[in-house]
Amino acid sequence: MSITTGEVTTARRLRLALILGSLSGFGPLTIDMYLPAMPGMAGDLRTSSSMVQLTLTVFVVGLAVGQVIVGPLSDAWGRRRPLLIGITLYLVASLGCAVAPTVGWLIAGRVVQSLGAAAGIVLARAIVRDLFRGTAMTRFFSTLMVVNGVAPILAPVVGGQLLTVTTWRAVFLVLAAIGTVLLVAVFFTLPESHHARTRPRGTLSAFRTLVTDGHYVRYVLAAALMFAAVFAYISGSSFVLQEAYGLTAQQFSLVFGLNGLGIVLLGQLNGMLVGRVAGEGTLLRIGLTVATAGSAGVLVCAALGLPLLLLLTFLFVVVSMLGLVLANATSLALDGHGSAAGAASSLQGLLQFLVGGLAAAAMTLPGPVTAVAMATTMLVCSAAALFVAVRQRGSAE
């Protein structure tokens, strides 16, 4: 069972968007849904809050490492087999987390769960590259941003509502149910998309080619730096907005959801504009310019103590630009690496989480997270992304 680019009908495009968008949303879905439950988990498992926090840390690390493992394997084995194995791991690990008697068990379950989620994220990008080229690929990535963007909007809300009627363990049962649905959907409706297999020993050669390709590295780095700017917001905004500005948990969830909606809207707008109004390179630079200006606005608001509504407006601008930037940068980076799309996708995923993690860590170096520290990190990362992207001027648009 296989599929070729010419067979991607409108109905199949919609099905692909729903399945691949859900797979690429594994990360934010699995992180955000159980965030509201973390305080209660410490008491139930008779452990410290720092140990519960470790369950989040190991998941993010596993998400990064898992992509580097699965991506090259899919170039050799095809996309379908590693994807089915990954979803199965995710499903089993989610059930294991739900019945975890100790925090050690939970940490182990989160490690396995992260490896399964990594397969979904990295292979969703690789499959898109298998099936599409050029502007068509960019438009499909924009469509994925619409589906993917729903995860950070709904996940905290669903997690919070579950806690009103049951315990944190139900969150992992819901994640297991989602994994089951996706496993069935992939098994019955997602054929093999990668036919030009590479030998496993060619993996190092593929990585060497990628890291020496300036075109690929610059676009992937631009995407990673923009991701880091938004990751700084994700990591610091709960402390800044609730502790410094006095928002309640419900008000913060609303702000978080609205910013996620911005990613969806800009992803949809990008799909409408690319190839019709401007090329990928132009839209990428526009997105990064607006994000940098918005980050500067956040910093000015934080430093001068300007009204909260103005700060939230600038935050919305910055976060929304992720929908514009990631689709174009990813398309430009992967376009020339069809035979090694798995490896190319895996390096992009690794770099995003690595740079994002370093940015979040740097934000906390001076001490507790403040609005100024968060805004400064966002500005540095978005400005660096713009600098990298501008250096690509003159490349194919």
Rank of each mutant, 00 (worst) to 15 (best):
S2C: 07
T4D: 13
E7S: 14
T10W: 13
R13M: 13
R13L: 13
R15T: 13
R15G: 14
A17N: 03
S22W: 00
G25T: 07
P28C: 11
L29M: 14
I31D: 08
D32L: 05
D32I: 08
M38F: 13
P39C: 13
P39I: 12
L45R: 00
R46I: 09
M51G: 01
T55R: 05
L56C: 06
F59I: 14
V60E: 07
G62Y: 04
L63C: 12
A76T: 01
G78C: 11
R79S: 15
L84S: 10
Y90A: 15
C97S: 13
W105K: 00
R110K: 10
Q113W: 02
S114A: 15
A117T: 05
A119H: 08
I121S: 01
L123H: 09
A124D: 08
A126M: 07
V128C: 08
D130A: 09
G134C: 04
M137Q: 14
R139N: 07
S142M: 02
S142H: 04
A155M: 01
A155D: 00
P156H: 05
V158Y: 02
V158I: 15
G160I: 00
A170Q: 06
I178S: 01
I178F: 13
G179T: 07
G179N: 06
T180G: 07
L182Y: 00
L183D: 07
F187Y: 10
T189L: 06
E192A: 00
E192D: 08
T203V: 15
S205Q: 07
S205M: 00
G214Y: 12
H215I: 15
V217A: 08
R218P: 06
V220C: 12
A224R: 05
A228T: 11
S237Y: 03
A244N: 10
A244D: 13
T248W: 01
L258S: 04
G260Y: 00
L261R: 00
V274I: 11
V274C: 06
T282G: 07
R285V: 15
I286T: 12
T289C: 01
V290G: 02
S295D: 09
L299R: 02
L304C: 10
L304G: 06
G305D: 09
P307Y: 01
F314D: 09
F316L: 15
S320R: 01
S320C: 07
G323M: 03
V325I: 15
T330M: 15
G336S: 12
G338M: 08
A340T: 11
L350Q: 00
G357S: 10
L358S: 12
A359H: 09
P366I: 03
V369H: 03
V369M: 08
T370G: 04
T377P: 04
C381G: 02
F387V: 15
S395F: 14
